[in-house]
Design a protein around this nucleic acid. Structure first.
Length: 877
DNA sequence: CATGTCACG
DNA sequence: ACGTACGTGACATGC
C-alpha cells in the first residue's frame, strides 16, 4: 500500500489570497475569475508536488460561529466580501467537485477548526499531513506529522512551517502561537489582546513564562512597572483572546480520513469548467495530462459466470444488480444477476435464477442488507419472476440524484462516474441504440453487469460520506430508498384501464373531429394540414390577413393564447381551438393510452425518481400525471381508469394549496400563516389584502387576479409573466406585485433571502435538505440570471411540497400494512394520491389517508387534505 | 432530432 | 435595455 498523505486546504483563506494577489480577470460572460484561477494554479502545483492520497477543502460556514458567543465583536469591522469575489465561490466549488476533491463546512465553525480536527486525527494515526492556507494563525497546528504551508505574495509561492521553522522564526513552539495571539491580539480578526503589547513583548514574555497562564502565575517576575500594570488590568482580555485564537481540534465534524480519499481529478469534468472560465493555459496543460478515467476504464476486473448464486455471496452487505435487455423493465427480458462483495464478483444468467431457492430466500430476507443501482427497476423486474426483495440499504442512482439532481443519470455508468468511478460502460455502448439495439454475447453482458455490482460495492462508503457531509443522508435513507420499493410496487400493480370506454370516447371524438375539419376547410377555401403550424400560419396570417400577435423563431405563433386573442375576428379561430383540443385527446389520450394497456388489462407507468430538478416524480410510458381534468370533455378519459377487482372502488386524496402553505411556513409571513390557520379562502383573502377591501366585497375578477398573483409568487414572480397570464399591462402587473409584497412582507423577505442564499452558497435547499445548484445565479447574462433567481424562489417551495408527499407515501405504505388493509396505492400526481380498495375499506381509508397525509410534516400552518371515492378515477371528485 | 403545442400539478 | 412566469411528457410536423 502506498504511503498516505493528507492535504487539508483552507478554502476561504486561499480564495481571499488569490483574489487580492491577482488582477481582476473575467471570462467572456463577464464573471470574475481571478480567485478561481489563482486557486487552480496553486492546486495544480501542490498536487504535482505532494501527490496526496487524501484531500479536503474546508469552508467557513455561516456568519456567526461559536467564537461569537465568547466575544460578539469577533471578526468585527471586517470589510464585506467584495461581490467580485462572492460570485466566484460557486465556480470554485464546481471546480473542486470536478477535481474529485471533497469539500466540507460545518455550521458555526470555521474552516480552521475543521482542518485542526482532521489534522489531529491524521497526526494521531501518524499520517503525514499538509495544511495549506493563507492565514498564519494555522501555524499553531504544526507538528511532527503536520506541516503548515502559507501562501506568500503570488499564489504558487509557498512557505512551509514545520515546528522547527516556527521556532526559527519566532523562537516559539507552534502551541505558543496561540499564547502570542492572546497577548498581542490580531487586528484582522478583531481579537483585542493586551493593549500596548506587540509581537516583540509577547515573544519575550512567552520565552520567560511559556504560556499566557504562566505569565499571570509569575506576574511578579514581569519586568517593567507599566507592562505589569497593563497585563494585570487586562487579564480577562488576554485569556479570552487566547481562547478566540485557539483552533478547535475537537469540532463535531461528521467526516474522517476515510471519507476524504482522493481518487485524482476527473479531467472530463475539469476541462469543461476550465473552458467555461476561459482558462486557456490550464486547459492546454490538462489536455496533455493522462486522464485518470482512461486508466480506470482499462482496469481489468475479476468475475466468474456461475449457474447458481454461491453461498459465499448470500450474505449481508452484498451489491446486486439485475441486468435487463431494455430500460423498459416491465417488459424487458431479464438477462441475469450480478453479485459482488468487493472481492468476489459473479454473474448468474437468468436460467439459473428460477429454481434457486437459496437466492430467493436471501433476496427476501430483510436482515440481508443489499446494495444496488436503481433498486426500483431491479425489484419490478424480479417481481415478474415471482421474486421479492427486501433489505435494500443503498442505491447508487438515488444517491447520485440526491447529491446533485442536475446530473443526467441515464444508467449505472453515469451514476458511478458522478463519484469518480469510470469502470462501468454505458448501457448504450453495450446494447447499441435505436434500430441497432441488440443483446450481445453472454460474456460481454456478464462483464458489464459484474462491473456494475462491483462499482456499487466500491462506491458505497464514499457516497454515503458525501450524503452525510451535506446532511442529506436522512433524506436519502429514510425517504428516497423506501420510496423506491413503494413506487416499484405501484408500477408493478398498475391501473386497470377499460379499453372499451376509451374506444367509445375515441369514436365520438373521431366524428366531431371530422365535422370540424370539414368546416375549417370550407372557411379556409382549401384543405391543408391543420396540425402543421407552418401551413396554418400561412392560412391565418397571409391568406386571411389576421394580425400577427407573436412570432416564434421559425415563423408565426399559433399557440392557444395567441388564437385566444384573435377570437371574434374570424369564426375559423374557435374551430381551430376546438380541433386542437379534441385532436390532443384523440392522439395522446385515446390512441396513446390504448397502446399502453398490457395483457393484464392494466397500464403500468414508470415513475422517474431521479430526474426532476425539484424532487418531484415524473411519470412516463405513459405519463399518468397529465391525464385531462380541467375541461369536462377530457376529464371523461378518467372514466376508463377503474378498480382491478370486483367490489372495489377508486379512492383519491389531494393536498389543498400545498405550495402556498409551504410558502407560508418557510417565509414565516404572519398574515399568510394566519389566513391558513383561520381556514380562509386564500385567494379571496389575498384579493382583500391586495385591493384593500373586506372579504365580502371581493369580486370574482379580483379573486381571479389574486389567484394569478399567488401562482406567480410560487413560481418566482415577474411583472412580465403576470401581465401575460392576466392579459394586463406590465405596469399594472408590477403594481399588483408591489401591493402583494407590501401586504405580505414576510414573503418579500423570503424571496430576497432565497436569492441571496443561492448567490452565496451556489444552491438552494428544501426543508428536508434536498438541494438544487444554480450555477447561473451570478451570471452577467440577464436571462440566465433572472431564470436562476426565479428558480431560487420556486425550488424550495415546489421541492418541499415534493418532500412532504413522498414522506406521506412512505408512511401510508407502512400504515396500510399495519392496519392489514387490502387497499393499494396506485398513482401519485404531485399533490394527490390515488388508491383502489374493497368497498368495505372505504370508511377506514377515508380516515387514515387524510390523517397520514396531513401529519406527514409538521408546519406552522395546517396541511389540509380532501378526499373522494367512486367507481372510476373520474368519480373521485 | 429539433420545434411547437398542449396535457397535468 | 434585457424579455420569462415553476416543474414535467407526448405527439405531430418537417428538416
Amino acid at each position: 500500500m502506498t504511503k498516505q498523505k493528507v492535504l487539508l486546504l483552507d478554502g476561504n483563506s486561499l480564495a481571499y489570497r488569490a483574489f487580492f494577489a491577482l488582477p481582476l480577470l473575467t471570462n467572456d460572460q463577464g464573471v470574475h475569475t481571478n480567485a478561481v484561477y489563482g486557486f487552480a494554479m496553486m492546486l495544480e502545483k501542490i498536487l504535482k508536488e505532494e501527490q496526496p492520497t487524501h484531500m479536503l477543502v474546508a469552508w467557513d460556514a455561516g456568519k456567526t460561529t461559536f467564537r461569537h458567543s465568547t466575544y460578539k465583536e469577533y471578526k468585527g469591522g471586517r470589510q464585506k466580501t467584495p461581490p467580485e469575489l462572492s460570485e466566484q465561490f460557486p465556480y470554485l466549488r464546481k471546480m473542486l467537485d470536478a477535481y474529485n476533491i471533497r469539500q466540507y463546512e460545518l455550521e458555526s465553525f470555521e474552516a480552521d477548526d475543521i482542518i485542526g480536527t482532521l489534522s489531529r486525527e491524521a497526526a494521531a494515526d501518524g499520517v503525514e499531513t499538509v495544511v495549506i492556507t493563507g492565514d498564519k494563525d494555522l501555524t499553531q497546528l504544526a507538528d511532527k506529522a503536520v506541516t503548515v504551508q502559507i501562501t506568500r505574495k503570488g499564489m504558487t509561492d509557498i512557505e512551509a512551517y514545520t515546528p522547527e521553522h516556527v521556532m526559527e522564526k519566532y523562537g516559539l513552539t507552534p502551541d505558543q502561537i496561540i499564547d502570542m495571539k492572546g497577548l498581542m491580539g490580531d487586528a484582522s480578526d478583531n481579537i483585542p489582546g493586551v493593549p500596548g503589547v506587540g509581537e516583540k513583548t509577547a515573544i519575550k514574555l512567552l520565552k520567560q513564562f511559556g504560556t499566557v497562564e504562566g505569565v499571570y502565575e509569575g506576574i511578579d517576575g514581569v519586568s517593567g512597572k507599566k507592562l505589569k500594570e497593563k497585563l494585570v488590568e487586562n487579564e480577562e482580555l488576554a485569556k479570552m483572546s487566547k481562547t478566540l485564537a485557539t483552533i478547535n481540534t475537537e469540532s463535531p465534524i461528521e467526516i474522517g480520513l476515510a471519507d476524504i480519499s482522493y481518487p485524482g481529478p476527473d479531467m472530463e469534468q475539469v476541462i469543461p469548467v476550465f473552458r467555461e472560465l476561459n482558462f486557456r493555459t490550464l486547459i492546454e496543460k490538462a489536455d496533455g495530462a493522462q486522464p485518470v478515467t482512461e486508466t480506470e476504464e482499462a482496469e481489468d476486473i475479476e468475475y466468474k459466470v456461475v449457474e447458481q448464486a454461491p453461498g459465499s455471496l448470500l450474505k449481508s452487505g452484498i451489491a446486486f444488480h439485475v441486468e435487463l435487455s431494455d430500460e423498459l423493465y416491465h417488459t424487458a427480458d431479464i438477462l441475469g444477476v450480478s453479485l459482488s462483495d468487493g472481492d468476489e464478483t459473479v454473474y448468474i444468467p437468468a436460467a439459473g435464477l428460477e429454481g434457486d431457492k437459496q437466492f430467493a430466500d436471501w433476496l427476501a430476507d430483510d436482515s440481508m442488507k443489499k446494495l444496488t443501482v436503481d433498486a426500483k427497476a431491479s425489484l419490478a423486474a424480479l417481481a415478474r419472476l415471482g421474486l421479492e426483495a427486501d433489505g435494500i440499504v443503498f442505491d447508487l442512482l438515488l444517491a447520485a440524484y440526491i447529491v446533485n439532481p442536475s446530473v443526467s443519470l441515464t444508467d449505472a455508468s453515469s451514476a458511478a462516474r458522478e463519484f469518480g468511478f469510470s469502470g462501468v460502460s454505458e448501457d448504450q455502448a453495450i446494447y447499441g441504440k435505436g434500430a441497432k439495439r441488440a443483446v450481445p454475447d453472454q460474456e460481454t453482458v456478464a462483464e458489464h453487469a459484474s462491473r456494475k455490482a462491483l462499482a456499487v460495492h466500491r462506491l458505497r462508503e464514499t457516497v454515503e460520506g458525501r450524503l452525510k457531509e451535506n446532511k442529506q443522508f436522512e433524506l436519502y435513507r429514510e425517504l428516497e430508498i423506501p420510496l423506491a420499493t413503494i413506487l416499484g410496487r405501484m408500477e408493478a400493480t398498475g391501473v386497470k384501464t377499460e379499453r372499451g370506454i376509451l374506444e367509445e370516447i375515441g369514436k365520438d371524438l373521431a366524428g366531431k373531429l371530422e365535422a370540424i375539419e370539414e368546416q375549417i376547410y370550407a372557411l379556409a377555401g382549401q384543405t391543408f394540414n391543420i396540425n402543421s403550424t407552418k401551413q396554418l400560419g400561412v392560412i391565418l396570417f397571409e391568406e386571411m390577413e389576421l394580425p400577427v400577435i407573436k412570432k416564434t423563431k421559425t415563423g408565426y405563433s399559433t399557440a392557444a393564447d395567441v388564437l385566444e386573442k384573435l377570437r371574434g375576428r374570424h369564426e375559423i379561430i374557435d374551430l381551430i381551438l376546438e380541433y386542437r383540443q379534441l385532436g390532443k385527446l384523440q392522439s395522446t389520450y385515446i390512441e396513446g393510452l390504448l397502446k399502453e394497456i398490457h395483457e393484464d388489462g392494466k397500464i403500468h407507468t414508470y415513475y422517474q425518481q431521479a430526474l426532476t430538478q425539484t424532487g418531484r416524480l415524473s411519470s412516463t410510458s405513459p405519463n399518468l400525471q397529465n391525464i385531462p381534468v380541467r375541461i369536462e370533455e377530457g376529464r371523461k378519459i378518467r372514466k376508463a381508469f377503474v378498480p382491478s377487482e370486483p367490489g372495489w372502488v377508486m379512492f383519491a386524496a389531494d393536498y389543498s394549496q400545498i405550495e402556498l402553505r409551504v410558502l407560508a411556513h418557510m417565509s414565516g409571513d404572519e398574515r399568510l400563516i394566519a389566513a391558513f390557520r383561520e381556514g380562509a379562502d386564500i385567494h379571496t383573502r389575498t384579493a382583500g389584502d391586495v385591493f384593500h377591501v373586506e372579504a365580502q366585497d371581493v369580486t370574482p375578477d379580483m379573486r381571479r387576479a389574486a389567484k394569478a398573483v399567488n401562482f406567480g409568487i410560487v413560481y418566482g414572480i415577474s411583472d412580465y409573466g403576470l401581465s401575460q397570464n392576466l392579459n394586463i399591462t406590465r405596469k399594472e402587473a408590477a403594481e399588483f406585485i408591489d401591493r402583494y409584497l407590501a401586504s405580505f412582507p414576510g414573503v418579500k423577505q423570503y424571496m430576497e433571502d432565497s436569492v441571496a442564499e443561492a448567490k452565496e452558497k451556489g444552491f438552494v435547499s428544501t426543508l428536508m435538505n434536498r438541494r438544487r445548484y444554480l450555477p447561473d445565479i451570478n451570471s452577467r447574462n440577464f436571462n440566465l440570471r433572472s431564470f436562476a433567481e426565479r428558480t431560487a424562489m420556486n425550488t424550495p417551495i415546489q421541492g418541499t411540497a415534493a418532500d412532504i408527499i413522498k414522506k406521506a407515501m412512505v408512511e401510508m405504505d407502512m400504515r396500510l400494512e399495519q392496519e392489514g388493509l387490502q387497499a393499494r396505492m396506485l398513482l401519485q400526481v404531485h399533490d394527490e394520491l390515488i388508491f383502489e380498495c374493497p368497498e368495505e375499506e372505504l370508511g377506514k381509508l377515508s380516515e387514515i389517508v387524510p390523517d397520514v397525509m396531513e401529519a406527514a410534516l409538521e408546519l406552522d400552518v395546517p396541511l389540509l387534505v380532501e378526499s373522494a371515492s367512486g367507481p372510476s378515477w373520474y368519480d373521485t371528485k
